[in-house]
Design a protein around this nucleic acid. Structure first.
Length: 816
RNA sequence: GCCGGGAUGGCGGAAUGGUAGACGCGGCGGACUUAAAAUCCGCUAUCUUAACGGAUGUGUGGGUUCGAGUCCCUCUCCCGGCACCA
């Protein structure tokens, strides 16, 4: 029987499904292993990128199953989100219809991968049975003060016509559609992720996360320790007696020669004197019109304007002018900074421009009092700083802070870059936020018993900047749960990252109608042992779900504190031209074409063989032929009748060598699969296949060894090529299913070489190689080396300085 | 600017401080075939040599070492993240 992948793929996919081979039982006695891959957005087409994420992930999950675990490797759909709405707008299809029919199609395509998904556990986030729990969690968070409504200058995408979270902004542009964002002052719902900033920086509960993801989360959270220091403005006669600034360089306090407020700082209108009002107003208007990208540009000119008021630096009683400047951000620290031109490069430029004094207070070594030509940001000795002169600036950071605290002029504090998670969206296709606005009772949560707040079917989703739901009278009009008076519903929907923050719980119990997930099952299955997916979610999904888990933990809903123990990021699959795949470049690969032609196993194996999974790499239309050819050879080899071997020619040495290679291959393959190194695992299987072909053609192998080799080859290949190996398994008389077998084990003694190649070097250069007994003693190796004619020709006439022996490796003779 | 990761044949890539280039693609040659495809076998870093061999070679320049793709320092380029965050 020849290898016909198309027939075999569908034959076994149907059989496995019919038998429920991949059904995962909760009461299975084996130890659990929860291995998740990031669920896809139902865009309607499963592209090669999905395959690249899912096929190797499946192979790894299968490998864990063959190691004896009860493996849960589920799949679902991240089904809420903008593309559905955009399709509705451009093609007049209802988002739900579009999404559900895409899911239908993608299920079929996903089945063609041949993965071990248990479809009974499928999760679809746009269904009320799922999103009602988003609402439930929202209410829990609200109850605990973790969800709040506030007016804030939020990020707005003019093209998506909705607000965005800070995490969804890349270089001043919308992460989805790349349009430049603007700011709006709006009342929105937030989650208090900042309250968890310190705990999110604690990665001790994680095992094996890529360092770069941890670094990215660290950068994003942006913790910095410093001092909040106040400047006295009591002689202005205002109610406020001081301006608070935040600095990480309190040691430079005596170098302050001005104070700068953000243009949006609340004190600005009151601190501005009449003489300066016009100029200040002009500046603020100009700042407001400056685009986000321009405002963020680091090399932008530092501008500002004096507002007419002075503030007092209490440590030396000096009056310093107060400016506004748009290089100071409202959203960070206190929205005001102390200007120390001598020791901060931005302040230096600002001071030069506005002719403000520059006073050195930290002396660089070898400084003789000359004027600075740029800011000195290094360490040195305190000068011009009163009682602190002569100390090192590092010592002073604490000393000054303590002294300030004693006088209540300042306090040590920590600032974070991360902002609270903005979860409101002015879009239709999402989870309605379960809140009601009542004229008498104010903001009232929808009672748990009234959940879900259903997303109405009819809405005008043409984006207007208003939430589409607000035009739906039937939805908006409701009664206040507290006083029964007529009231209005919240019409914003939730960020879809809400859905993915807890979906790992729902796979355990996808249709539970009384809880988001069964508490007993959570105890049994969580935490996720292995998570795989793209690195683009480092500060969005992965940070949000860590926050979500910690919040749930604190509320008492779950016992664990981290959602994902281990994380592995696959790389990006590129076009054959080494460019990112895109329709406009015409380098997009359609996996279905290759699956139809060469079979799912060939596509799976090739994707794993291209290179290390975490590095990604270019697809190759011709390269896949190599993998397909190899699978054909495997088929050919395993399908041979071992009984037809002419055993009279079997050779003891070949048998021993073949067994050795087999055990070496099992060892290599096991260790590589364990670490997601599919490419080298497959390479080692190829080597074994090449060897088997050789010994078959010269009949130097016996039937028993042959059968052992082909059997183990099938087992090792099974995680990567599940269809073909299942067929071959049956053909060789083994009982169904190969996917319920254990991964082969190896014997280090049988894998050990008994003859090794000893490399002979002179001055570190290879001059000869000899075959020797593996257990060779140093003295004998040295003697053999010196006896080699080739070595002799290089040593002749020179004196041997020394000789290095590396056991079972080489002899290096050093001559002068 | 700061923080990560990387640079190895024509291409994808492999190498616990110890034989650089495993495995595969492509190319070349051969077998089979009327022929082609498929399949199988052999060769394939560069220079040099009739050949044996020799020299060179892992982005650049230096260093440590008996020995460096691997460790240390310098620089260049590529990718990712952060970036007026006080």
């Amino acid at each position: 029987m020849s290898f016909d992948p198309a027939v075999i793929d569908s034959k076994w996919q149907a059989r496995w499904e019919q038998d429920g081979l991949h059904k995962v039982l909760d009461n299975d006695p084996r130890p659990k292993w929860y291995e998740m891959t990031m669920y896809p957005y139902p865009s309607g087409d499963l592209h090669i990128g999905h395959w690249y994420a899912m096929a190797p992930a499946d192979a790894h999950a299968r490998f864990r199953r063959m190691q004896g675990y009860n493996v849960l490797h589920p799949i679902g759909f991240d089904a809420f989100g903008l593309p559905a709405e955009n399709a509705a707008i451009s093609r007049g299809i209802h988002p739900q219809e579009w999404t559900l029919s895409n899911i239908e199609n993608m299920r079929r395509q996903l089945r063609s991968i041949g993965a071990i998904y248990d479809w009974d556990r499928e999760v679809i986030t746009c269904l009320p049975e799922y999103y009602q729990w988003n609402q439930w969690f929202f209410l829990k968070f609200y109850e605990k003060g973790l969800a709040y409504r506030a007016k804030a200058p939020v990020v707005w995408c003019p093209s998506c016509q909705t607000v965005l979270a800070n995490e969804q902004v890349l270089n001043g542009a919308c992460e989805r559609c790349n349009s430049e964002i603007t700011r709006r002052d709006l009342e929105q719902w937030f989650f208090k992720i900042t309250e968890y900033a310190d705990r999110l920086l604690d990665f001790s509960g994680l095992e094996e996360w890529p360092d770069r993801i941890l670094t990215m989360q660290q950068n994003w959270i942006g913790r910095s320790e410093g001092v909040e220091i106040s400047f006295d403005i009591s002689d202005t006669g205002l109610e406020e007696k001081e301006i608070k600034t935040f600095t990480t360089r309190i040691d430079t306090l005596f170098g302050v020669t001005f104070v700068v407020l953000a243009p949006e700082h609340p004190l600005v209108p009151r601190l501005t004197t009449e003489d300066n009002r016009q100029a200040v107003d002009d500046y603020i208007n100009k700042a407001r019109q400056t685009s986000e990208i321009d405002r963020l540009a680091a090399d932008k000119e530092k501008t500002g304007v004096f507002i007419g008021t002075y503030a007092v630096n209490r440590v030396n009683g000096e009056k310093v002018p107060v400016y506004i400047g748009d290089y100071v951000l409202t959203t960070y620290g206190t929205g005001a900074v102390m200007g120390v031109p001598a020791h901060d490069s931005r302040d230096f430029i600002f001071a030069q421009k506005y002719k403000l004094p520059i006073r050195t207070v930290i002396a660089p070594i070898e400084w003789k009092g000359e004027e600075q030509v740029e800011a000195f940001v290094g360490n040195g000795f305190m000068t011009n700083s009163g009682a602190y002169d002569g100390m090192t600036n590092e010592e002073c950071k604490t000393a000054i802070a303590i002294d300030l605290e004693k006088r209540s002029w300042g306090r040590r504090t920590v600032s974070f870059r991360i902002r609270d998670w903005l979860i409101s969206r002015q879009r239709y296709w999402g989870t309605p936020i379960p809140m009601v606005y009542c004229d008498t009772c104010g903001v009232v949560p929808v009672p748990e018993s009234d959940l879900p707040v259903l997303l109405p079917q009819d809405a005008d989703f043409t984006p207007t900047g208003e939430s589409p739901l607000s035009a739906n009278e039937d939805f908006v009009k409701t009664v206040c749960p507290k006083c029964n008076a007529s009231a209005r519903r919240e019409t914003d929907t939730m960020d879809t990252f809400m859905d993915s923050s807890w979906y790992m719980m729902r796979y355990l119990d996808p249709h539970n109608a009384v809880d988001p997930s069964n508490p007993q099952l959570l105890k049994q299955w969580m935490t996720v042992d292995q998570y795989t997916g793209g690195a683009e979610h480092a500060v969005m999904h992965l940070l949000y779900s860590r926050f979500f888990t910690k919040s749930m933990h604190d509320i008492g809903l779950v016992e664990y504190d981290e959602p994902f123990l281990r994380l592995f990021n696959q790389g990006v699959i590129l076009g054959a031209d080494h460019d990112k795949m895109s329709k406009s470049k015409g380098n997009v690969v359609n996996p279905d074409d290759f699956v139809g032609l060469l079979g799912a196993d060939a596509v799976r194996c090739f994707l794993m063989f291209i290179g290390p999974w975490d590095q990604g790499g270019p697809w190759s239309d011709v390269g896949i032929n190599g993998t397909a050819r190899w699978l054909n050879r495997v088929w050919d080899i395993v399908a041979r009748d071992a009984g037809s071997l002419d055993t009279s020619k079997a050779n003891e040495e070949t048998i021993r060598g073949t067994k050795r290679l087999l055990h070496q291959t099992v060892r290599k393959c096991y260790n590589d699969l364990d670490k997601f190194k599919f490419n080298t695992a497959i390479a080692s299987l190829m080597e074994l296949t090449n060897h088997l072909n050789r010994v078959w053609s010269d009949s130097s192998i016996d039937a028993e060894t042959w059968r052992e080799c082909t059997k183990k080859l099938m087992l090792m290949l099974a995680p990567m090529a599940p269809h073909m190996t299942e067929e071959l398994w049956g053909m060789n008389g083994h009982s169904y299913s190969i996917h319920q077998q254990e991964f082969p084990s190896w014997d280090d003694d049988l894998a050990a070489e008994d003859v090794i190649t000893l490399v002979l070097q002179v001055n570190g250069k290879v001059r000869d190689k000899i075959e020797v007994d593996a257990g060779i003693e140093e003295s004998e190796a040295q003697a053999l080396a010196l006896a080699s004619p080739k070595i002799q020709s290089f040593v002749e006439g020179k004196s041997v300085v020394k000789s290095v022996y590396v056991p079972s490796r080489l002899v290096n003779i050093v001559v002068a």
